[in-house]
């Protein structure tokens, strides 16, 4: 309706403007674009969706089983492990990423080449491969030793959980390093000059000037990685770590309800990744409070609307 609504005609109040043509043009109603293709393509996509949903509803899936396993203890336990793994790897990956980015930007050629090499290796090989290598570290080094202080069998130290944390953090760190590098490089050079001129030490400059200004453009990237890690953690099932995917597998190996359980955990993955998105929204808002960088897209606005509605809803209740 609104797209075809006619605006009311204008009227020229200033009597000194006597051009008849201008008066006639100003009095004409305005008609906005109608966008017929949006309506048509929207209808087509809805039809396609209905077809897909109907097909699945009629297919050979026991939907009651999907619901029944949703709050199964083993599934919830697996969910907890998945979230734990993703949170730890996001934090470690960010820490590694910042460190490597600083090395990469350093004037010290040794530090910067080491950082380049790190990114090259860990961004250039599959996560699954890295995971298997870390898990099988014992084949290379049967024992881990700090001479005279500590010694242990590698198998006892590098458990599936530890292998997953190391592999996923290091791999995420390589990606995040590149994001951090870009975000730091985008901070205005004048900021560094102002800090130098004030005699602010390098460390303080980095902590108080550079990072706070790099953060707003970095948060979306880190949020993105948190979501990727929530999903990538499913790889850990391969090294017999029972996160969400592993738990589902353990159940369906026994009862053969493969697709039902996959749908069950798909729901949980969606819940987890959506919540990560909400968290990201708040972080962006917090770091963007001085409006150094303002970036909003329609999805952000939609998230903001939903959150506002939820908040006003709880307030009203």
């Amino acid at each position: 309706m609104t797209s075809t609504a006619h605006a009311s005609p204008g009227e020229i109040a200033d009597p000194s403007i006597r051009s008849a043509r201008l008066a006639r043009l100003a009095s004409l109603p305005l008609k906005k674009h109608a966008h017929p293709w949006r309506w048509l393509s929207g209808a087509f996509i809805i039809a396609a969706l209905v077809f897909v949903v109907r097909a699945f509803a009629r297919g050979d899936i026991e939907w009651s089983e999907v619901a029944a396993y949703l709050f199964d203890d083993r599934i919830l336990e697996g969910l907890g492990q998945t979230v734990q793994l993703a949170v730890i790897c996001t934090l470690l990956g960010t820490a590694i990423g910042i460190g490597v980015a600083v090395m990469r930007l350093s004037r010290n050629p040794v530090a910067s080449s080491v950082a380049w090499f790190y990114v090259w290796i860990f961004r250039g090989t599959p996560d699954l491969l890295q995971l298997l290598l870390w898990f099988n570290l014992a084949l290379v080094f049967p024992t881990l030793t700090i001479p005279g202080v500590w010694e242990a069998r590698t198998i006892d130290v590098v458990t599936p959980f530890v292998a997953a944390v190391i592999a996923l953090s290091i791999s995420a760190g390589a990606y995040i390093a590149e994001n951090v590098r870009g975000a730091i490089a985008a901070v205005d050079h004048g900021q560094l000059e102002a800090a130098s001129a004030l005699g602010l030490p390098k460390r303080s400059t980095f902590r108080k000037i550079v990072m706070p200004q790099a953060m707003p453009s970095l948060i979306p990237a880190i949020g993105n990685h948190a979501i990727i890690l929530l999903k990538l953690s499913s790889l850990a099932s391969v090294i017999s770590y029972t996160e969400l995917m592993g738990s589902a597998q353990e159940i369906y190996y026994v009862n053969a309800r493969v697709v039902e359980l996959l749908f069950t955990i798909a729901i949980w993955y969606l819940v987890a990744t959506s919540l990560a998105g909400v968290l990201q929204y708040y972080l962006e808002k917090w770091y963007g409070r001085s409006n150094v960088v303002t970036r909003t897209n329609s999805l952000d606005r939609a998230t903001a609307r939903v959150l506002n509605r939820l908040r006003s809803g709880t307030k009203g209740a």
């Binding site: 205005d188 900021q191 130098s196 001129a197 004030l198 000037i209 706070p212 200004q213």
Partner: peptide, 17 residues
């Protein structure tokens, strides 16, 4: 040493955050 020398820039360079 730089702390003994203040500087004011053409483009202000205030810390925007």
């Amino acid at each position: 040493q730089r702390r003994t020398v203040g500087m004011v820039f053409q483009r202000f360079n205030l810390f925007p955050h």
